[in-house]
């Protein structure tokens, strides 16, 4: 038992080392440096407020007093990391999950819209890619517009789409999901088109000598060959879908991380905003990680990766 535990540690460490390209220490160093910079910035940016207050009260605080105050203001310009962490912990663990004050509840609102939109976008992207690969007219006419559609700053018009959809009676989850879907379909189209076209001429010729139909070529060759491309796209797509959902929540204050951000900015609740930002970041990280894990498992089962 102890034996196994002892050998397990180096194995885990080895895996982590490989994944991060040679060492968690450099990453740790960078992260610590970032937090240090954050503390310095917090002290510097919040000190004006402290000095203001002191001048009004007619006192002249010492350096250590100023420093202590910048770390514990109610509405700091830049909350210190430990303030954000405390607020985050309070909102996540000390509130019932169903309450509107709970960050978990808001994260769930955002997550559900993200996942629905991501699902729609992925299916749409795969269908479009199938059409583009199998129909030359579609290839020539749709592909340039799919690319052009991404130069349109869709996020910028997201609030309008939400408001218009609301005015014709579509409310709740769906409008946000539409934005998420629009953002996530493009990477899937581009990835799947290259993926479905990735089988080389020899493989295609082989299936033709077998007299395989187009459907058989699709199922037995094109789809399996496109899986690595699909997952590379899905990782980009799910992050984009989350951004879409967050921005989609801005105009309608019905919960969600985007609503928390806007509410925080209206009422000067900076600590709340930063907590919501961190929730969004954690959500993005977890979603990408899940897709990565599924990818690794699937590719291993398909024999594409050892």
């Amino acid at each position: 038992m102890t034996d196994a535990a002892q050998t397990a540690v180096p194995i885990i460490r080895g895996a982590a080392l490989r994944r991060f390209g040679g060492g968690v220490y450099p990453i740790l160093a960078v992260l610590i440096a970032l937090i240090a910079v954050w503390y310095l910035a917090a002290a510097w940016m919040n000190s004006t407020w402290t000095m203001d207050q002191a001048a009004r009260a007619g006192t002249s605080p010492g350096f250590s007093e100023i420093l202590a105050d910048t770390m514990s203001q109610d509405r700091p310009k830049l909350p210190a990391p430990h303030q954000v962490a405390a607020e985050f912990y309070d909102l996540v663990f000390n509130k019932p999950v169903t309450s509107k004050r709970s960050l978990v509840w808001h994260a769930w609102v955002t997550l559900s819209a993200t996942l629905v939109g991501f699902g729609i976008g992925t299916v749409l992207g795969i269908v479009l890619a199938l059409g583009i690969v199998h129909n030359r007219a579609m290839d020539l006419s749709v592909m340039p517009w799919a690319i052009a559609s991404q130069t349109i700053p869709i996020l910028a018009i997201a609030p309008m789409i939400i408001v218009v959809l609301n005015s014709i009676g579509i409310t709740g989850l769906l409008p946000k999901a539409v934005i998420s879907a629009y953002l996530s379909f493009f990477p899937v189209v581009v990835g799947m088109v290259s993926g479905l076209r990735s089988p080389d001429a020899m493989q295609m010729d082989l299936l033709r000598t077998y007299n395989a139909s187009r459907a058989e070529i699709l199922w037995k060759l094109r789809f399996p060959a496109s899986v690595p491309y699909l997952f590379a796209s899905l990782k980009v797509g799910i992050a984009a879908a989350l951004v879409g959902a967050v921005v989609g929540e801005l105009p309608v204050q019905q919960g969600g991380l985007g609503a928390r951000l806007l509410g925080g900015s209206y009422y000067g609740q900076t600590v709340q905003m930063w907590a919501a930002l961190f929730m969004a970041a954690i959500l993005a990280a977890v979603l990408v990680l899940i897709v990565t894990r599924i990818e690794a498992g699937l590719l291993k089962r398909m024999g594409l990766r050892q």
Binding site: G21, L31, L155, A280
Partner: peptide
């Protein structure tokens, strides 16, 4: 490089547009 690349890769996937209200305040 080894420290910054994973951090930057991670940051590139974050909803950075969410920092907009903070920066508008600043």
């Amino acid at each position: 490089q080894k420290g910054l690349l994973p951090v930057a890769n991670f940051a590139a996937a974050l909803p950075i547009v969410g920092t907009a209200p903070v920066l508008v305040m600043w």
